[in-house]
Amino acid sequence: MKEITVLGSGCAKCIKAADLIKSVAAECKVAVNVTKETSPEVVMSYGVMSTPAIVIDDVLMHSGSIPEKETIKSWLVSNS
């Protein structure tokens, strides 16, 4: 089970990013738990300045945009 957190202020892009990750995970049949984190304090603790940002198992993977589908796949499939 991968713990995935989407960091962002709850804007439309962050919601889209979370939904996209869920759908890609379902497609690849990878078990994930996607949560959204809107607290500015937590976002700051990852050193993120442009949202949405994606954290997987506590590692910052991406920030500043909705990630590409292919990119998400590579995260989910690698070392799972």
């Binding site: 709850g10 500015p40 700051m44 050193g47 442009s50």
Partner: peptide
């Protein structure tokens, strides 16, 4: 360029 929803993370990123 940045979207207004990023102004808080930017503020904190600069400040920290």
């Amino acid at each position: 360029p940045f979207c207004s929803c990023s102004s808080i993370p930017i503020f904190l990123g600069f400040t920290s």
